[in-house]
Amino acid sequence: MRVIAQAGAYHVADGATYAEHLRVPCLSLGTYSLPAGAHDPQQPHTEDEIYIVLDGRGRLWTPDEVVDVARGSVVFVPAGEEHRFVDIAQDLTVLVVFGPAEGTATPR
Rank of each mutant, 00 (worst) to 15 (best):
I4M: 11
Q6F: 03
Q6I: 03
G8L: 13
G8E: 09
Y10V: 10
Y10Q: 07
H11I: 14
H11D: 14
A13E: 15
D14T: 06
A16S: 12
Y18A: 01
A19K: 11
H21R: 13
L22F: 15
P25D: 07
P25C: 10
L27T: 02
S28L: 04
S28N: 04
L29R: 07
L29I: 15
T31R: 09
G37Q: 12
G37S: 06
A38P: 13
A38L: 11
P41Q: 10
Q42M: 13
Q43P: 01
P44I: 01
P44G: 03
H45L: 05
T46F: 11
D48W: 08
D48V: 00
D48R: 00
I50Q: 06
Y51Q: 04
I52E: 13
G56T: 08
R57M: 05
R57H: 15
R57W: 06
G58E: 07
G58V: 11
G58A: 06
R59Q: 15
L60W: 14
W61E: 11
W61C: 09
T62S: 13
P63G: 11
D64Y: 10
D64Q: 15
E65K: 14
E65R: 14
V66T: 14
V66D: 04
V67H: 14
V67R: 12
V67S: 13
D68P: 02
V69L: 09
G72Q: 10
S73P: 03
S73C: 03
S73T: 07
V74S: 04
V74Y: 03
V74L: 08
V74F: 00
V75R: 09
V75Y: 11
V77Y: 02
A79D: 00
A79L: 00
G80R: 08
G80C: 06
E81L: 13
H83R: 05
H83K: 08
R84W: 00
R84G: 03
R84M: 02
F85K: 02
V86P: 03
V86S: 12
D87W: 07
D87M: 11
Q90K: 12
L95K: 02
L95W: 04
V97P: 05
F98D: 00
F98A: 10
G99D: 01
P100G: 03
P100R: 05
A101R: 06
T104P: 04
A105T: 07
A105W: 02
P107F: 09
P107E: 10
R108H: 09
R108S: 10
R108P: 12
